[in-house]
């Protein structure tokens, strides 16, 4: 029972992090570690991501 709840909580957390894009930072760190790059600071990383969003229209329907 507890194990099932913990798994469900993990699943929800995973989903929310993916959904909001928070997980992109973790992906980036993993990517850097894999290729031996030194990651930029989180502030820098998020700033670049936000600036990239500037040029995409982000459609929202009625």
């Amino acid at each position: 029972m507890t194990a099932a709840l913990a798994r469900a909580w993990q699943g929800v957390r995973w989903y929310l992090k993916e959904f909001t894009g928070e997980a992109r930072w973790d992906d980036y760190l993993a990517h850097c570690a894999e290729h031996g790059h030194t990651p930029v600071s989180r502030r820098e990383f998020e700033r670049r991501r936000a600036d990239a969003a500037e040029a995409s229209p982000m459609s929202r329907c009625c």
Partner: peptide
């Protein structure tokens, strides 16, 4: 942007 970058949740 400034206080805690990226902590969307």
């Amino acid at each position: 942007r400034v206080l805690r970058p990226g902590r969307v949740l």
